Computed example of a mutant assay.
Amino acid sequence: MSDLKQQITAQMKDAMRAKDKVRLGTIRLILSDLNRIEVDERIELDDARVLVALDKMAKQRRDSITQYLAAERPELADKEQQELEVIKTFLPQPLSDDEIEKIIDEAMQATGANSMQQMGQVMALVKPRVQGRAEMGQVSARVKARF
């Protein structure tokens, strides 16, 4: 079992003891999703794959918040925001703008990219380094702006 998954399991036990229903419910959702991935793909998740799953869950929550606020359903947006805050506790520290730019610079130099046709190569190098630490949509937009 990955270290991150063990940490999440330990946090679930702490949330049970503290009777923190929101945190407990969110952690159970996380573990359920991780277990589903393990069963579906017949693999044991490593920390990198757990981060990918957590990043996806965080993105889903951000999208839901936007949609609920547009539909004037603040109570549902609040629930999603609470879940997002719990998910964020398991993600690594977000990268600063300067750090993201540096990673993009390094990837562009490594690939020798100078046109949009090579964006996929740049993103293939950038994505593993920023996964869970930056929104991929924003990173992708920054890479596009370079061409």
Score class of each variant (00 low, 15 high):
Gln109Lys: 14
Ser96Asn: 04
Leu84Gln: 10
Ala124Gly: 08
Tyr68Pro: 01
Gln93Val: 13
Gln93Trp: 06
Glu99Phe: 01
Ile100Ala: 00
Ala10Cys: 03
Thr9Ser: 11
Lys21Val: 15
Leu91Cys: 08
Leu84Ala: 09
Pro94Ile: 00
Arg62His: 10
Ala145Gly: 09
Leu69Asp: 08
Val139Leu: 02
Leu45Gly: 04
Glu38Pro: 09
Asn114Ile: 11
Met136Val: 11
Ala18Pro: 11
Thr9Trp: 07
Ile37Met: 11
Gln60Ser: 12
Asp40His: 05
Val86Asn: 03
Ser64Ala: 15
Ala134Met: 02
Ser64Trp: 09
Ser115Ala: 11
Arg23Met: 03
Gln82Val: 10
Ser96Thr: 15
Arg49Asn: 04
Ile87Met: 05
Ala145Asp: 14
Glu72Thr: 13
Gln6Ala: 08
Glu101Ala: 13
Lys21Tyr: 06
Gln118Leu: 07
Gln7His: 09
Lys56Ser: 12
Ile104Ala: 03
Ala77Cys: 07
Met16Ala: 05
Val130Ser: 05
Val50Ala: 14
Thr26His: 00
Val143Ser: 11
Asp97His: 05
Leu34Ser: 03
Gln117Leu: 14
Ile30Glu: 13
Gln67Leu: 06
Ile8Lys: 15
Ala145Pro: 03
Gln118Lys: 01
Asp98Lys: 12
Leu76Lys: 05
Thr89Met: 04
Ala70Val: 00
Lys79Met: 07
Asp98Ala: 14
Ala134Gln: 01
Val50His: 02
Lys56Met: 14
Asp98Gly: 03
Leu31Ile: 13
Arg142Ile: 04
Asp55Phe: 04
Lys102Tyr: 13
Gly132Cys: 08
Leu31Ala: 09
Leu69Gln: 13
Val122Ile: 10
Ile104Phe: 00
Ser2Asp: 00
Glu41Thr: 01
Glu83Met: 14
Met119Val: 06
Asp20Trp: 00
Ser64Val: 14
Met136Ile: 15
